[in-house]
């Protein structure tokens, strides 16, 4: 398996303050990788939306008592054309896969708040994996690039 890891300014990962505004930096980076790989536009948007949802969760709930960071690593399995984005943070333990899906049959007023973003990620990505390692939440998103 040949894995290519994308560097950000010579670093193995992008380190971001866990603030929603910082998504701009991640978005620009993912867009530049998408351009380099000539990703289909739909895949590019799905990756951006999914990254947005995960990063927003970390920024909004990961560090209730103060400032923190999120680390983002981007890899490509060049043989299978499978794209991975790995988020790690030292915030409160949170496995988004345990968040129940919103009940789409209920009127929107009666639905539980939250869970919508994670639901969208699960729909758009092929694989969403969570693990807790030492004191880190590690969430991996995988998406096979389908070129038409």
């Amino acid at each position: 398996m040949a894995i290519r890891r994308f560097q950000y300014n010579g670093e193995e990962a992008l380190l971001l303050p866990a603030k929603r505004e910082a998504f701009v930096t991640l978005k620009d980076w993912l867009n530049s990788i998408a351009d380099e790989l000539s990703l289909p536009d739909k895949t590019r948007k799905q990756l951006l939306i999914s990254a947005d949802e995960i990063f927003t969760n970390i920024a909004s709930y990961g560090y209730p008592s103060g400032d923190g960071h999120a680390k983002v690593m981007v890899e490509l399995d060049t043989e299978n054309e499978e794209f991975s984005i790995v988020f790690s943070d030292k915030g409160v333990p949170y496995n988004p896969l345990e968040t129940p899906d919103p009940d789409l049959t209920k009127p929107i007023e009666e639905r539980e708040a939250g869970g919508l973003g994670v639901f969208v990620v699960k729909k758009m990505m092929d694989v969403v994996e969570y693990r807790r390692e030492e004191d880190c939440n590690i969430l991996t998103l995988k998406k096979k690039i389908v070129r038409l």
Partner: peptide
């Protein structure tokens, strides 16, 4: 508008 994430869905709602 090229894409909308859940933050955008909430604003539209």
């Amino acid at each position: 508008v090229d894409y909308v994430s859940s933050a955008g869905l909430r604003v539209i709602l």
